[in-house]
């Protein structure tokens, strides 16, 4: 726990997020957290696959899904993963403005994704596909809702981190936070790729 010694060195180490034991612990702990989240999502995927055939009188996946909106939100979210990489590159260059700019674009894209998702859900509800309409509806909204609330949490979290970044700058204390937030954002993106494949693309098969 020799944080102070490292922090007082002039300038910033090459990988500020791993410069302290605290930072190393945080990153490893976060990877483990992602592993745990993976099994959480795996359980919800499994449930969705088991129940997606039970749409009762409501629309089936094939009748329901509209690819243009889904493709647009996929594009938006994948781009946001790229911009979060650019933000971390800014952090490694010790360029606070660059990092804040790209994180800002990242959460903006996240917000657009959420907007598209809300629009999509409203459309579905008009077609009689709700969380209570059938087991298909329940498992669909649980899976997508869990993912969507992860995106929302990420947007709020990164927003908080941006405020901290503006006040405190990039230090060995703040760098691990930015780094794990970008890890989180990538994870949420990867989950979406699976949702896009398993829910939407496989749903296109009549």
């Amino acid at each position: 726990m020799k944080i102070e010694e490292n922090a007082s060195v002039a300038g910033l180490p090459a990988e500020p997020e791993r410069a302290t034991l605290e930072g190393k612990n945080k990153i490893l702990g976060f990877w483990l957290f992602i592993a745990a989240e993976t099994t959480l999502f795996a359980t919800e995927f499994g449930t969705y696959l088991a129940l997606k055939g039970s749409s009762l009188n409501g629309p089936t996946p094939y009748e329901l899904f509209q690819m243009p909106v889904v493709a647009a939100s996929t594009l938006v979210l994948l781009t946001s993963s790229l911009t979060s990489v650019l933000a971390i590159m800014g952090m490694h260059e010790n360029d606070l403005q660059k990092m804040l700019r790209w994180f800002g674009i990242t959460i903006l894209l996240g917000a657009v994704f959420l907007g598209l998702e809300v629009y999509e859900f409203v459309e579905y509800i008009h077609e009689g596909h709700t969380i209570t309409s059938s087991a298909f509806g329940s498992s669909f909204y649980l899976l997508l809702g869990t993912h969507g609330s992860h995106v929302l949490f990420g947007v709020l979290w990164i927003l908080g981190l941006m405020i901290q970044g503006r006040n405190k700058g990039i230090t060995v204390h703040t760098a691990p936070k930015f780094y794990v937030a970008s890890l989180y954002w990538h994870f949420v993106d990867v989950v979406w790729i699976f949702i896009f494949t398993v829910v939407y693309l496989m749903g296109m098969i009549p």
């Binding site: 129940l51 009762l56 059938s134 329940s138």
Partner: peptide
């Protein structure tokens, strides 16, 4: 919230 994960009447499955 009256969902139907395990409610057979709503198409759910108790074995899940």
């Amino acid at each position: 919230f009256e969902t139907s994960f395990f409610v057979t009447a709503g198409g759910g499955n108790v074995v899940v």
